[in-house]
């Protein structure tokens, strides 16, 4: 049972990784990378490492994604000023 969950999560993560690299729109790419971290924290639960799971969830999916979005926002802001 556990093995099937792991395999499913694994495939999902690899798919998310490819999406993160190859999706046209940056926003969804960032969301994909957040998803990878989320699934990774689930795997940490399976690996009996709760501390790591919490950290990964909080920092990996939460904070990294927020920092990415802010950066994207700042870069987008600059691009709009330039165009209009």
């Amino acid at each position: 049972m556990i093995l099937t969950i792991i395999i499913v999560l694994g495939i999902l993560m690899l798919a998310a990784a490819f999406m993160a690299l190859y999706l046209k729109d940056l926003l969804s790419a960032i969301i994909a990378s957040g998803a990878i971290s989320l699934m990774a924290s689930v795997i940490y639960i399976i690996l009996a490492a709760p501390d790591v799971a919490m950290t990964e969830a909080a920092i990996g999916s939460g904070l990294t994604t927020i920092v990415f979005l802010y950066a994207l926002h700042l870069v987008r802001k600059k691009q709009e000023d330039k165009h209009d």
Binding site: P50, D51, A53, M54, T55, A58, I59, L63, I66
Partner: peptide, 17 residues
Amino acid sequence: TPGGGFQGGVVIASAIV
């Protein structure tokens, strides 16, 4: 319990955000 300084700090930070 599991968790600690880092995790707690991040949660509070997300609250502020």
